[in-house]
Design a protein around this nucleic acid. Structure first.
Lengths: 162, 162
DNA sequence: CCTTAACTTCACAAATTTCTGAAGCAAGCG
DNA sequence: CGCTTGCTTCAGAAATTTGTGAAGTTAAGG
């Protein structure tokens, strides 16, 4: 076991499934959501493939797929235990806050599409104007979110100590 | 036609499909994404069910479903033209900026699930502590986003005039 | 009132997604 | 070296989602 003695596996599982369901509703796929929730609810903050497979009652293949996705969007990081081919998957708090806000790549592509739209519909048209305003909005958000994260760090230090 | 003479229906359609694809990738369903994009790219900013049906080549049933969803998440508003049973669906810029940031309902439910998690896993446990920090993060974000929207309004006024 | 236009709801067929078991591959270990 | 363990890939069965046609509902207009 990676975790300290679990209080109540039943309660943990209930939380995992409940939180995962909310993530699914927000657009995340089912397995990634469950894997992520399981990590979040683990004392160590890191679990192996076998542990995830057992706790969530899913095949190693499902773990593999979910983990690949989560790593891609930076919601977990992979750790190789030296001298073993066992891998552990970890949620790093900073990392995942960023993943949620840092939709940067997505926003960038929205901006590209909008820029093209302004050009092809004509900057003078009402539609073109609407797209331009939307574009400006995203450009603004992008910068401001970075500042918000700074404020969060300060706030966190205040709450939990640094 | 609700719109002024369209520059190039081909170009409009290309933008609509391209932008919709990006929205889909971000988690929106296909039809809502297409309907929303079509509205965004219309000169009037509002279209009837029949117009959407024709421009997107989809059935009235599909329009109905998409529109119901979009209205629910406040990404468009329904307008009844007085003295007609024709309805028009409109994107109101303020409204949809909010819809994107204002994931308030979703975040609230995340917070609820996290609060339950802290309680049932124990606030003293490492897992409980991680959940509590996550909860604090969302509570912070929730408040700060409101302030960010204020700053956006000021910035927009500066860019486009009030 | 009755007709008709405009949307909505519903059942179902089609397409897509999801998850699994099985096979494959790679890295420790004997 | 070859065995074994652990992750990954893949093909396919099962479940889910999606979009349609058709029937249903509501309200304007005669």
């Amino acid at each position: 076991m990676t975790d300290a003695v679990e209080r109540d596996p039943e309660a943990v599982s209930r939380f995992v499934e409940r939180f995962a369901a909310q993530l699914v509703e927000a657009g995340l796929q089912r397995m990634p959501a469950r894997v992520f929730s399981a990590l979040l609810a683990s004392d160590s903050g890191a679990l192996t493939s076998a542990e995830l497979s057992e706790r969530l009652r899913i095949s190693p293949a499902a773990v593999s797929g979910a983990v690949r996705y989560l790593a891609q969007v930076h919601m977990l990081s992979r750790e190789r235990e030296p001298g073993s081919r066992r891998e552990r998957y970890r949620v790093h708090s900073d990392q995942w806050y960023q993943a949620l806000t840092n939709r940067e790549a997505i926003i960038k592509r929205w901006e590209d599409a909008l820029r093209e739209g302004v050009a092809s519909l004509g900057a003078g048209t009402p539609a073109g104007h609407r797209l331009a305003e939307t574009l400006a909005f995203f450009e603004f958000i992008e910068k401001d979110v970075a500042r918000m994260m700074e404020r969060w760090k300060a706030h966190r230090a205040e709450l939990f100590g640094d």
